[in-house]
Amino acid sequence: MEHMLSLFVRSIFADNMIFATFLGMCSYLAVSKNVKTSLGLGVAVTFVLLITLPVNYLLQVHVLDPLDLGYLSFILFIAVIAAIVQIVEMFVEKFSPSLYASLGIFLPLIAVNCAIMGASLFMQQRILLDAADPKAITGIGDAVMYALGSGLGWLLAIVALAGIREKMEYNDVPKPLQGLGITFIVVGLMAMAFMCFSGLKI
């Protein structure tokens, strides 16, 4: 239980998807122009992570490992992610049209978001860690917590950046630096701030 909690908090702050491992950077930079849409994307990413990561965990532990098919993991993971995104999209469209309308085009795009694939690949590495390591994923509960934490960390990062960019609209930035240049530097500064969490112990 303690291990799960620690894994959860670490994956939000110390191992933040954006600031520590740069996963999902493309959509992070493209969609962070205003808070509302970025919140929608953040929720969608968290949601998809929460489903795909445990499924990939079970496949890795119960199918790939016993059969020694580790080299197929890339193809299997990406197929699972693409299929689940499709199913989630149809499911949400059927049962919650309002959520579907607010997530809009983001859902299908998530299949190629590196945060989703990256989390599965990190999970694959973390299974091999010693159980005492705070980063280790030892069971399905840990996998769920890791997915939830990573998703929330991503959500936090994108909403924070969107807030800053909304304010920055009115600032006088040097012309060649406007738009993406300054966004990169802002994200760099945010990453520095997040480095303070790396010593976090629970």
Binding site: F22, P174, P176, L177, G181, I185, L189, A191, M192, M195
Partner: peptide, 19 residues
């Protein structure tokens, strides 16, 4: 060596390229 500097350096490359 920190991740943060990579972002800032890419920002600078973009800056130089656009100038």
């Amino acid at each position: 060596v920190m991740p943060a500097m990579a972002l800032i350096l890419v920002g600078c490359v973009i800056w130089a390229h656009r100038s």
